[in-house]
Nucleic acid binder design. Sequence first.
DNA 1: CGGTAAGA
DNA 2: TCTTACCGG
Length: 326
Amino acid sequence: MGNADLRQLAVIEEVGFDELDGAVAVDAHNWLYKYLTTTVRFTRDDAYTTADGTEVPNLIGVVRGLPKFFENDLTPVFVFDGRVVGLKDEEVESRREEREKREAKLEEAREAGDALEVARLDSQTQRLTDVIHETTRELLRLLDVPMIEAPAEGEAQASHMARTDEDVRYVGSDDYDCLLLGAPLTLRQLTSTGDVERMDFEATLAEHDVTWEQLVDVGILCGTDFNDGLPGYGPKTALKAVKEHGDLWAVLDDEDEYIDDADRIRELFLDPDVTDDYDYDDDVDPDLDAARDYLVDDWGIAADEIERAFERIEESVTQTGLDRWT
DNA sequence: CGGTAAGA
DNA sequence: TCTTACCGG
């Protein structure tokens, strides 16, 4: 039941930032989530929580995460999710169960007086709140960072842009779904300090001598966000079966198995709900004073927490000028 | 999602 | 060698 199965099939190369340039369509949800779970420490609630208890770890996270793009000649285009798409009842149900399990553990920790565990579980349940989304957008707006609203899933829109928009060279996401969505080059680990992983769609197809449709079929057999996959089918077995029988239907026929809505799931990857009706200006001209005021005056962020990040943004944006691809 | 231990 | 289940982040 994991897309991580696809890692074993994907052609992935480590690349240095100096090998990259151009625009990258960043899956905003994935980037924010990753940033909040890795960089922002739940042990330091104080720095990220306002006087009235609103948690806005994203404000520091976003402003500290941006210089990495600018300093390396990458223009981020943040792609936000639209409406939630296509989740089956089973998936909704299992998420509800997960949430209830977490809440039970949280209650348990509260009763035991385990403050650290409470903070940890708390930060897991909160995560990407409406406030976090709204304030992230406002901050990006002030910093003049390009943003796109996806009609449905952000990673689908980002993958579509990388496939069809000649100015967009990469998708930025850690999600292996991007491979099934046909994103030519996906940059993983953009939030970490080390090297970036570049996942190559065409090279992956060539490596295993399969078509895009067949790769999607392999993914469905292993299991995706939308289905459970066949028991006993991991990446190797699924790939072998699809190549042997040609496509998903032939494999299911041979195994006398059935996957609910398989045709619909296939379409979610091969022909997702995306739009060409977007535009953005990659000539980034941030209003640094306004952004700084927003963080410090409106949200009470300590000025010294963000000063260095602002210096880096100012230097990199004014020095290189991010408009050289227009 | 990554790592890993266990089992088939 | 491959799949699964679990945990910690």
